[in-house]
């Protein structure tokens, strides 16, 4: 009488997938979030989830390097980067409603469509993840694509910067999934690079805000052709 059930994933697979789904969902939340500060908080949350994933994989699979990666990503992306950006935005106006180029619902639908695209493209590849379940890379790709959408569809400097940072989060998950053996030196170099990029984006944000008195990029229309 009882039909065959689809076997549930193992605890490790299920947990890792659920964590990665949180990364993707927070990407969607950033797409919607109207205020720049809530976006930065969402980014901090997403980074926390990513470093949590690194720790979880490290603990489950006994890979020492990943502890270091998780620690670095926690220190830099959860604490330093959001703090730096929030500090740079201290005197910026809170209200940024209306930086969406499209309605939120339409944006979410587009984002769903491109996520599905990313998931299916990756699913068709013969890339075997050494550590993580198969869906991880697809979810990471989806998060990367949605972060592109965030940069394209939001016309304020904070969203665009946060879009870039969260793109890096997506790539981090992808690298956990398929390139966990990438030497620690390179991984740490990535993080420092990110830190530099954050400072630069922050400086430019300040320059723009100091000059245009707005965080919107709609003012940036002088250069054409």
């Amino acid at each position: 009488m009882m039909p065959a059930l689809l076997a549930p994933p193992s605890t490790f697979t299920g947990t890792a997938e659920a964590i990665t789904l949180l990364v993707l969902l927070s990407e969607f939340a950033m797409l919607r979030a109207p205020l720049s500060r809530s976006q930065i908080r969402l980014y901090a949350f997403q980074s926390l989830v990513v470093s949590g994933l690194a720790f979880y994989v490290a603990a489950d699979r006994h890979i020492g390097d990943l502890y270091a990666v998780g620690t670095f990503s926690f220190l830099l992306k959860v604490i330093v980067v959001p703090a730096v950006i929030l500090r740079l935005l201290k005197d910026a106006p809170e209200d940024l409603a209306g930086s969406h180029r499209l309605g939120v619902a339409s944006m979410v639908l587009i984002a769903i469509a491109i996520s599905v695209f990313g998931l299916f493209v990756v699913a068709s590849l013969p890339i075997a993840s050494i550590l993580l379940p198969k869906a991880e890379l697809g979810l990471a790709t989806a998060a990367i694509l949605v972060s592109f959408l965030l940069v394209i569809m939001r016309s304020d400097v904070v969203s665009q910067a946060v879009g870039f940072f969260s793109l890096e989060n997506g790539v981090s998950v992808a690298s956990l999934a398929i390139a966990s053996g990438l030497s620690l030196v390179a991984e740490v170099a990535f993080f420092f690079d990110l830190l530099v990029a954050v400072v630069v984006l922050g400086v430019l944000m300040r320059l723009h805000h100091g000059r245009a008195r707005t965080l919107s990029t709609n003012e940036m229309d002088r250069l054409r052709g």
């Binding site: 697979t13 969902l25 969607f28 309605g103 619902a105 979410v108 599905v116 299916f120 379940p133 869906a135």
Partner: peptide, 26 residues
């Protein structure tokens, strides 16, 4: 007029459920 956001969120979550199953066996 913001209710569509709520509906879109529900659809997103449900869609991800199907995708997680279909692609990853989650």
């Amino acid at each position: 007029f913001k209710l569509t956001e709520f509906m879109a969120a529900a659809f997103l979550v449900a869609g991800l459920a199907v995708l997680a199953l279909y692609l990853g066996g989650g």
